[in-house]
């Protein structure tokens, strides 16, 4: 008998909790891990300002962000790349439209170990390193040390942009290390003397040497005037569902205050043109 009472109690509690969460309005966000820190930080401030709205942010990767936004299982999908053709096809099949909003800019930043003397690479040299045609720092005027080439996993949006803009669609060398996150790349480069890797600008710090490309360093100015070769935009996607809270959130992201947070996270603000 006692057990039955406990069961009933638990049931009531669950129902109660379910109703509670449904009452407050919520915004569900998922997608790219590069965009995650920005949206997470903005969501926290947004929730402080609007306590009645609950914003939940998850990772998952750019494709999952876009796919879930199309399926409307979430309200906003994050992506560190543009929408792909096959995703547009799915959209057309379902007769839906997806709104693309650029919320920040990022520079894919090349980092090497502190002890490395190299300060600058050309895009051609970069391509040769990542396709295995240059294997020693000596060939670039550095110390006689084998190059440890580090890349992000093929599933990351950063890889896709790097593959297109730096590797120019040539084949990645087979002994290139593929790491799962920006943090893993940044950490490994910081303690591996021969290493080179690429990360989102927010992840490069004093523990690495930051390389300039074609003598252009990844500064805010060079990203804004589009001279840095590996710059890219970060996006959020949403379907037109006329949800007031979602519009509120997007406006907040694009507001001065939201863009301040973007810069605080190490990224570059978006310029509307």
């Amino acid at each position: 008998m006692k057990k039955v009472l406990i069961l009933i109690f638990i049931l009531i509690l669950t129902l109660f909790m379910v109703f509670c969460t449904q009452k407050s309005t919520s915004i569900d966000i998922a997608g790219s891990t590069t965009v995650l820190p920005i949206v997470q930080a903005i969501a926290e401030i947004f929730m402080d300002l609007n306590p009645e709205i609950n914003v939940s942010v998850r990772g998952g990767g750019s494709s999952i962000g876009i796919k879930s936004a199309i399926d409307e299982t979430i309200d906003i999908g994050n992506s560190s790349r543009e929408i792909k053709d096959n995703e547009i096809e799915i959209l057309q099949e379902k007769n839906k439209e997806l709104k693309k909003i650029a919320i920040a800019q990022d520079a894919i930043t090349m980092i090497v170990h502190k002890s490395n003397k190299i300060k600058n690479l050309s895009i051609v040299q970069l391509k040769k390193i990542y396709s295995g045609k240059i294997t020693n720092w000596k060939e670039l005027g550095g110390n006689n040390k084998n190059i440890i080439v580090i890349s992000r996993d093929v599933s990351s949006g950063s890889f896709e942009v790097f593959y297109e803009k730096a590797l120019k669609n040539s084949k990645l060398l087979t002994n290139c290390m593929m790491l799962a996150s920006n943090n893993a790349v940044a950490g490994t480069v910081s303690y591996t003397p021969g290493a080179i890797g690429y990360v989102g600008r927010g992840y490069a710090n004093q523990k690495h040497n930051i390389l300039s490309l074609e003598n252009i360093s990844p500064t805010t100015k060079n990203v804004l005037n589009k001279t840095y070769p590996l710059s890219r935009k970060l996006f959020i996607f949403t379907t037109e569902q006329n949800k007031k809270t979602v519009d509120m959130f997007i406006n907040f992201v694009l507001s001065e205050k939201g863009q301040e947070i973007v810069e605080k996270q190490g990224y570059v603000k978006i310029v509307n043109n």
């Binding site: 990767g61 494709s63 096959n86 599933s155």
Partner: peptide, 15 residues
């Protein structure tokens, strides 16, 4: 790159 690592880290973004 062991098999499990390849499956887990690449599955996220395959079509």
């Amino acid at each position: 790159r062991p098999m499990t690592a390849a499956v887990a880290s690449e599955m996220g973004e395959t079509v």
